[in-house]
Amino acid sequence: MNRKTAVWLLIPAFLGVLVFTFFPLIQIAIPTFQSKSGFFSLYTQFLKSSFNWAVIGRSFLIAIVTVIVVLILGVPISIWIGRQKTVVRQILNLLILFPMLTNAVVRNFAWIIILGHDGIVNKTLLALHLIKSPLNILYTNTSIIIGSVYLFLPIMINSLIGSVAELNVEIEEAAAVLGSSPWRTLFKVIIPQLTTGILTGCILVFAGTMTAYTTPEILGGNRHLVMATLIYQQAMTLGNWQNASVISLILIVISALSMWLMRRLSHHLDRRPINA
């Protein structure tokens, strides 16, 4: 009714985001384009380094593998939880929510206990005489991936359970009547209906892993830098703010682009009417 009131209600939030998100971003962005040797020269310089490419490549590798593993583990358990009776489902939901809300340091630290030099995995394998000396699992890409999967699996499950609970079981019954086996039904009937939920989960996991700081910091060590840890190292350890800004912008572009791409994909794949 009174549009003036509405504007006053919006202004604080608007200014908050504008001044503290967009202004700082512009402020770090501008100097990266003001190099004497050309508009993009800082970027081309950055991308000439094979070390930097290794970091970017590692970030992608970790994010992609994490998404795939999270998806493989997340889909079956989400279907199972989504199909429980209400009370059981809510309790299981809380069990999934608990790790989600637990500090990331704690969750990554747990994997040091498991994967470390004297960790459970090495002790078990030694006891079974499968290996002669402890394996170096910790501080590798593998340990970062394991930690990321552990960090993001609950998010994927959480975003899928809702879509599973909304599925119309009669559609599967129809498929069964038409002669489809349960596992065939999973791939041909259930998963296609979960496309939107799965893609939303994938976006969250991919962008989350790509930009995560804590996991690669704890489980990757100094020799396995990813983009997020490189930003911190450049800015705070080496004091090279310009470089940190360059990586920040590349990271923003990559995560924004991947989200945009996935969203396009989800529109393309999801043939159901939007308002269904």
Binding site: Q27, I28, I252, M259
Partner: peptide, 20 residues
């Protein structure tokens, strides 16, 4: 617009905000 901070990596928010 109000949801846009989620699109910016947290590490970048920290870094940019620290500078600005």
């Amino acid at each position: 617009f109000f949801l846009s901070p989620t699109l910016i990596p947290e590490i970048v928010i920290g870094f940019a905000l620290y500078q600005a």
